[in-house]
Design a protein around this nucleic acid. Structure first.
Lengths: 199, 199, 199, 199
DNA sequence: GATGAATGAGTATTCATTCAT
DNA sequence: TATGAATGAATACTCATTCAT
């Protein structure tokens, strides 16, 4: 018979599940998935090892839920930004805002992003989730832009490419510290490149 | 007393070390670092488990050497390409060649790249090695371009950014398969964007 | 302080205890004692895990009570049969009836019999209970036979041996399926052997 | 990749595998399969926990091999006895010898027999092995008896039944101690019954 | 009485690393 | 140098039992 995993309905339970999730989040983010063990998660969450398996099927299941949290935390601001766009679009402002946003996300979710991205190479579900996420964001953005009158050819491809650029530059900005790079100057170049994709 | 790690001088030994390295390369690349155990590496290399520790300090040490191989294999073609550049530079052709090259590298070293990149998030040495690699390539390219008369402002930043773009697009091309993306069209956009950075 | 195990007096409680017992019966019988956990028993009984310990000291205590049920269910028909015997005894008919009975019991209580018998090898109490059961039946039968005029020497030993034969043949009949055995023929031999013990 | 289980060829290894087997034999026999853990087996065998898994796939695999040993130890004497039979058969002597033998086996292998028999109720492989064993013995005996001129009808069924009787009586003799039973008398009855099956 | 969430000791198994040969 | 058997610490997961509500 399958062990049953509780879907907590009551406040106390939800709170406890969240504690475990948060502990997992922090630990995976700080030392990585493989260097974190369930006992540590339980301890940091202030619960017993056993109850972890009351709320999660296994260790990987925690990772999957952590991914969910991350996605929620990381991408809702950018989506809000897009949703609130009004014509006519000022692409310079938009590029700046999106970059600010993305850098911020990277700064605050840096390690967990890396940890999860890392897992996506070996874990199909994690990977699928990431792809799905990109898909939905790309589509949502291109639809909005089109609705607001953007008419560059291959709009979807441009949006997707723009997102890649934003991602990789934010990563640069936060993580790499190539001493010979003038990041302010680079940022200006990036912004101009982004704008050039749409006007 | 510290165990001594042999630096093999004799041909037979070098061959054996390489076999282990190759085995590690394949295994890390196919199933990932954490899902590969030393016994498997030894077996695939056709050597005993014990001797692995004659050539490597520990499992991670194999990874570090695998990284070395990867870097060598993956980036020498691109460097050769750059070295052979002659003025006047045709940036359209260059962009195309570099992209072809990068995509090729991704195709052939896809999995190990992911595995290594993955490790770079938790392993400082691996990360440092990656940064160092980018550094040297960026510098080498910008120096060459400058030597050939490129005079865009912030040339180094432009080169670095261009490399980011190339990396992220190659990754897209090989790994992601967003069904709504017309990759040929996207590639044209990418090439034009690259060229625009330098003319 | 010892936890008190309630001896349920009220109807609702008795009913609940019986549900647990029945659930234990089915589970132990179907998957065995060690592969059954208390949560499963509770779930099948439609009660909470906690209350199980209101009615039983521990998991093993359930087994002991299950044994009680089994004994009751399994042996009352045979005892009834014996009690209703009248002189002169037709041993051929008796052998047939007893065999029919025993086979029937085996068929219907097969698995739990095995599970319990199994436990009797490692659990003294279970074993004692089985022995005690055999004792009482043997004695009851031999007394009755004697009362009806049976005068074979060592009557008790013969009865006990006869019971062993009945047991082992019933087991054969239900469980083993040696393809080379003609069970109908074997049964005739068994019946004749039983009769021969008493006439 | 499947972990490889060593099939020891060298004397030292065979010896070690046997030590583990013997430890398993004793422990399973004394406290039962479920109450024995692998650490105990390793400790009693004087080896590390790890190496146990070098020689056996898992804990159950030890049990299966223990079963093999048991079968070998327990049944070779009886088979030898049968093989050496010469016409004309003295069934009185044969019954006596077989009983002596069986009782002896029970005495010396009592607990492991019970433990294994016990497992056969929940473990298909163990059960299959037991059935197979009975099959081969029954057949070997009936063939031999037939070869020596035994001509009772349904000889195979008689042999099988006789074996059941021998088993159950030996079990009685060693394990149960019904105080009201005169076991010497019972034994005589059993022997006569056995003989009666064949003459 | 009743619930079911919580506990935490217990266990099989893996694997990087060592070492006797 | 080379072997591969041996080590034993580490770890995910289970489950009988308890206890706050």
């Amino acid at each position: 018979m399958e062990r049953e995993v509780r879907e907590p309905k009551q406040e106390r339970s939800i709170e406890k599940k969240n504690k475990i999730l948060q502990a997992g989040y922090e630990l995976f983010s700080n030392v990585g998935y493989y260097s974190t063990n369930t006992a540590q998660i339980a301890k940091r969450a202030g619960v017993s090892t056993g109850i972890v398996y009351g709320y999660f099927k296994d260790k990987r299941d925690i990772l999957l839920d952590v991914l969910g949290i991350y996605v929620e935390r990381a991408f809702s601001p950018v989506l809000k930004l897009i949703d609130s766009l009004k014509a006519p679009i000022n692409y310079y402002v938009l590029a700046k805002d999106v970059l600010d946003n993305a850098i911020d996300i990277h700064r605050n979710n840096a390690k967990i992003h890396e940890a999860l991205h890392s897992m996506s190479h070996t874990d199909t579900d994690v990977n699928a989730r990431f792809i799905e996420l990109e898909d939905s964001i790309t589509l949502r953005i291109s639809n909005k832009l089109a609705a607001l009158g953007a008419d560059a050819p291959n709009l979807t491809e441009r949006v997707h490419f723009a997102m890649d650029i934003v991602q990789s530059f934010s990563h640069e900005w936060i993580f790499d510290n190539h001493p010979y790079i003038d990041y302010a100057a680079m940022r200006t170049i990036v912004e101009n490149t982004l704008v050039a994709l749409f006007i």
